[in-house]
Design a protein around this nucleic acid. Sequence first.
RNA 1: GGGGCUGUAGCUCAGCCGGAUAGAGCGACGGUUUCCUAAACCGUAGGUCGUGGGUUCGAGUCCCGCCAGCCCCGCCA
Length: 603
Amino acid sequence: MLTLSKVLKLQIQNALESAFPEAASAARAAGKRLDPLIVPASKPEFGDFQINGALPLAKPLKQSPRQIATAIVEQLETNADFLNLCKPPVIAGPGFINLILKPSCLVNEISSRLIDKRLGVPSIPPKKKNGEISPVVIDFSSPNIAKEMHVGHLRSTIIGDSLARVFEFRGYEVLRLNHVGDWGTQFGMLITHLKEVAPEALSTPNAIDLGDLVAFYRQAKQRFDEDNSFQLASREEVVKLQSEDPIALKAWKLLCDQSRREFQKIYDRLNIDLTERGESFYNPFLRQVIEDLKVKKLLVLDDGAQCVFLEGMTGKEGKPLPMIVKKSDGGFNYATTDLAAIRYRFDASPKGDNALRLIYVTDAGQANHFAGVFQIAERANWVPNHARLEHVPFGLVQGEDGKKLKTRSGETVRLRDLLDEAIERAESDLRLRLKEEGRLESEDFIEHVSKTVGIAAVKYADLSQHRLTNYQFSFDRMLSLQGNTAPYLLYALVRIAGLARKGGMIDIAPDELQFNEPQEWSLIRELLKFDEVIVEVEEELLPNRLCTYLFELSQSFNRFYDQIPILKTDEPYRKSRLALCRLTADTLKTGMTLLGIPTLERM
RNA sequence: GGGGCUGUAGCUCAGCCGGAUAGAGCGACGGUUUCCUAAACCGUAGGUCGUGGGUUCGAGUCCCGCCAGCCCCGCCA
């Protein structure tokens, strides 16, 4: 409906301007145009679109809104192209104009969707900068080496992946960057600990499996906190690492490799593709960041540290807020790395990523930090003209008590345990249902369905929530088989797959399509919204909009399925209804794929 | 002290550029299956949109004040 609503908007704008030529030319003289304010109808009984533009014109034109609406409608009724698309417009309420699309128009839209793999979503040509393709860079997931992925990484990973998929579908080149925490002072204690507990690992390849890295990290941390000589050794180790001592580097690499393997297991389960480029990657560029800030006269020495004072942000006692980019001991910190990363990502290749759009998917708690870093990047002139630099923040994952999600013993929940539990619960639900229905299924089937449903439930629960709000994690709710959940959507697809098995998904010629039931028309209208929703998600970066749409589409389909016979009806309705089923399945599958959720044929 | 986010039905949440009588789901109550997977469908009840002002023809939505919760604020990320 994207193109259709554009056409209508133009037609209505013309009608508005011919109805009120003086006001139109006055608006044009001011560099504006009269706005018909055409939006999707707020309720089905108001038709397909509503024109709100008559109301705000009442005052300047000194006419009643209904008079204005009448004048617009009179103009529209002289337009044959318009009358080809819409039924005669209806003036309603204080001065709204309701538009109802003609059935022939809707059927045309449906038949072009049926042969369009992109389901009406336009593909944009690849963006170019400096003559080369310019990717959208999305920075997401970003766990820390030697720590286990936990719920805190869940939202970034899932939301980032979904946004990346939407951009890819729209035709953008996307660079999915995993900015893992692979550098910093914590490596001092880790390497020191490694040298003591497993020195052989440094000389013999694959000599040791570090096993539970979390336990390893905890041991190292405990010794660091308790043992002075260990602390001293750790600090020395940091210096060695930074000066590229081969043994320290080897130990560092060992820890990174081990972590990478652990992370990859999670990414494989979640079916998420990422390019790892950790903080250490930017080490060679840190000095240049400081140099450039100095050249741009942004650098100030304060209390022994090199800072940039932020504009428009004040700290305690109203003083400008500093951002430290070089510590008093000469070391760099995360702000420096983040600045180097922005610079690199916008720079032209080969010494940069040549990006025009850079998106960070991190928790809302880092909003201040990114606002500061972005401001410095702007002031240092590292952000090209027309480039976009965005923080995409999200709220916390909370337990059902409304507090930060913890295990019963009060520890952070490991991501793999969380996924395991979702799958286990999905499995026991499934087994119970099979038993109740007297169905017999193979163990392979049960395993596959449980995994798919469990992971889908976790992802969908997260994505269907508005990004910014804190999100209350509940296995019971996300796996519930009713409501706005992954299983509900998956079930709609399973129903269609069942029809396909029994009735076949036959091809239908456009002129054979014929509909006569209200449930068909409401499903048709729902199907046609898909393209607008995708474009909206791309603009707003809010995957929950797609979830809401897919849920409403599923509801609309389930009503249709429940109330209208499909296989047991005469032609041409049988074929027409099957065509709607196929289009529903294609739309749901595409939508779910954009959420990163695989679908099922049976469940 | 400064800044950010949040506050909508008993619970969990939607609500698009300000538009018509504020919507879902869960839970509660009632109904639907000789028929394509009932993990579904239909119906009923449930609201001072935190609060007080302001802007507007029109405010859940925009502006200001206040209240509550969470988060951030110099050498961790």
